[in-house]
Design a protein around this nucleic acid. Structure first.
Length: 622
DNA sequence: ATACGTGGAC
């Protein structure tokens, strides 16, 4: 074993004996320290001690401070590894980036007839879960039954987890209904499984009927709602959780903060931040990240920055959250500054950081900076650019008007472009009125991503913009025939801690009549200012009057009307929309900001727009 | 004589 250095150290200069070594191994916290102890075990002959070697392995396979290669080396030197040692190695590989090695070790274990115990299967199934290896899971399931571990709640829960989160929720259900040893973890696993495949009713059914719930049960259900885009339900459940007296932990708080980010619920988010400080919960890297993200996505970059400065241990995710905040605010220069600061602190950007910084360049028109950063991904940082980076570059070039160059990049990229990449180019065509190219790309998109309603809408509006009404109508018809629906537009406005949501053309708000009446007044004033609605992008099978009706009922307009009604003159109105703002709404909002002398902050799917005195911070390119 | 299953982010 050439790589083990027998360096003499002060700590180990005294002779170790068999009773001291175990406690040393247990207190060991660094790999170098472990290696020294291990070296000493060689010297003293303790290296033949099964228990001590097991302890060495246990340390080496722990993902945080361990070293799997070293573990493998130790393992290879053991004459006949026992069950514990095999288990340790399987555990290590299950959590590593080579989970397939866990399965190979298991195979080997069977081959040399080393017996299983109740710990073997959870580790092994963890590997199956990372690999989504369904065939192997089924085989292991058979082993679990054959070897008599079917009544072990750990083994069955591990099986449930693989089935439930690898696309076999029905298999999970079969097992769940069949086993007698169900506990809170089994239920949590099922709730998570159903939530992750979008079956929220069933998830809630199981959650509701659980005899006892722990903080994980609540968090699973809450983050299930967040994942399904049901943010209000998530917030409501969080309140219910508190009523039940369940104390949220870091994970629960991260989950609920992410719902606040999506809703733009700044008041709620602030409250939770204050709660964290009050209870004295430690802001771990993920919680720090979601807090910064929450402030950024709720429009308060200054607070995001302040929090960033306060967090002691600044991991790359924190920097990334900050940079991505500046990106969506169109503050590209600051994003670049912080990107530099980050590297001065010795923090290496990862692929998410690059997505953030390239987005920042894109939204601020920093074409050259973006180009050289893109080059640096592989050149300087030795990472390989991912498809999302290509997407950012197409967006950056397209937005800036370099449509040919953007198209050229797509043609020479090493991976097959996806709908996001084409979508970025199509958006650039819309922005720069390149109808010919737009039509081509729209067609590619509809074929490529035919389940996605927005693609048809895009293509139809490109045709319409070119005056090609037949084609436009036909595209819409095709969408209808294929049974594809469009995600409905939804805008939210948060007033006094209450989030009000509006759907396009919706009438479900308790003050609907008043709101539509207010919109009529606004429309009247807009007309006096000479505004004419841009109708070409609209529903094509409608008469002009009906189109005007439809465009007047876009969710952001309803939210603005409500905001103007319920806030004092001069206060900023903050709107959050789930889709990209449409051109007509953008034009109208600029006018409203001038006529009503209001600052209107609108976050759409991709960025913030701040409307002031008839202008918008996005510079009309979004 | 040691370990195991469930929830969070950019």
């Amino acid at each position: 074993m050439p790589s083990i250095t027998l360096s003499p150290t002060k700590q180990l200069s005294l002779e170790l004996n068999a009773t001291q070594t175990p406690s040393l191994l247990e207190r060991c916290s660094k790999m170098e320290e472990l290696k020294r102890i291990h070296a000493h075990m060689f010297k003293t002959g303790l290296v033949a001690d099964t228990i001590l070697v097991s302890k060495v392995l246990t340390f080496c396979v722990s993902p945080k401070y361990g070293n799997l290669e070293y573990a493998q080396m130790v393992f290879d030197r053991v004459n006949r590894p026992n069950t514990f040692m095999y288990n340790a190695m399987i555990k290590g590989y299950a959590k590593s980036n080579k989970p397939e090695k866990a399965l190979l070790l298991y195979q080997h274990m069977l081959y040399v007839s080393v017996p299983h115990n109740s710990y073997t299967f959870p580790f092994l199934l963890k590997a199956c879960s990372s690999l989504s290896a369904m065939e192997e899971t089924k085989q292991i399931h058979a082993h679990v039954i054959k070897l008599g571990f079917a009544s072990e709640v750990y083994a069955t829960n591990s099986l449930l987890h693989v089935y439930a989160t690898s696309g076999s929720i029905n298999a999970a259900r079969l097992l769940f209904d069949q086993v007698s040893e169900r506990d809170i973890v089994s239920c949590n696993t099922m709730v998570d499984g159903y939530a992750k495949c979008g079956k929220m009713e069933i998830a809630y059914e199981i959650f509701k009927d659980m005899p006892t719930k722990n903080v994980i049960s609540w968090t699973t259900m809450i983050s299930g709602y967040v994942g399904a885009g049901m943010h209000k339900e998530a917030l409501n459940l969080f309140h219910e959780m508190q009523t039940e007296g369940v104390k949220p932990d870091n994970v629960a708080l991260a989950s609920i903060l992410s719902a606040c980010s999506c809703l733009g619920a700044l008041d709620q988010g602030r409250w939770i931040h204050a709660y964290i400080d009050k209870i004295g919960i430690e802001i771990d890297p993920i919680l720090g990240c979601v807090l910064i993200d929450m402030y950024a996505k709720c429009g308060d970059m200054e607070e995001a920055l302040e929090l960033f400065k306060k967090v002691k241990k600044k991991e790359v995710s924190l920097w990334t959250a900050l940079i991505s905040g500046f990106a969506i605010h169109g503050r590209g220069r600051e994003a670049l500054d912080w990107f530099e600061n980050m590297q001065k602190e010795g923090i290496k950007p990862n692929h998410i950081t690059f997505t953030a910084i390239l987005t920042a360049c894109s939204h601020s028109g920093l074409v050259d900076a973006g180009k050289s950063l893109f080059e640096s991904i592989s050149g300087v940082h030795k990472l390989s650019p991912r498809i999302e980076h290509y997407g950012c570059m197409v967006d950056l070039l397209g937005r800036a008007g370099f449509l040919k160059e953007a198209k050229g990049l797509i043609e020479k990229m090493p991976v097959k472009p996806n709908a996001v990449v084409w979508g970025a180019l199509l958006n650039a065509c819309r922005m720069h009125r390149n109808v010919e190219l737009g039509k081509k790309i729209g067609k590619i998109l509809v074929e490529d991503d035919s389940d996605h309603g927005d693609r048809y809408i895009h293509l139809a509006s490109v045709h319409a913009a070119a005056g090609d009404w037949d084609q436009a109508v036909q595209t819409r018809r095709q969408m209808k025939e294929r049974g594809v629906s469009k995600l409905p537009g939804c805008s939210a406005i948060s007033l006094n801690g209450v989030v009000h949501e509006f759907l396009a053309g919706g009438r479900s708000h308790p003050h609907t009549t008043e709101i539509y009446h207010m919109w009529d007044n606004i429309a009247e004033r807009l007309k006096k200012e000479g505004y004419k609605p841009a109708l070409q992008n609209l529903l094509l099978d409608l008469e002009d009057e009906a189109k005007e009706m439809a465009i007047n009922q876009h969710s952001e307009k309803l939210a603005i009307a409500f905001g103007l009604l319920r806030t004092k003159p001069g206060t900023t109105i903050r709107i959050f929309k789930n889709l990209r703002i449409c051109e007509d709404c953008h034009t109208v909002t600029k006018l409203i900001s001038e006529i009503y002398d209001r600052e209107i902050v609108m976050r759409d799917r991709t960025r913030f727009h701040i409307f002031r005195n008839g202008n918008c911070t996005c510079g009309d390119k979004w």
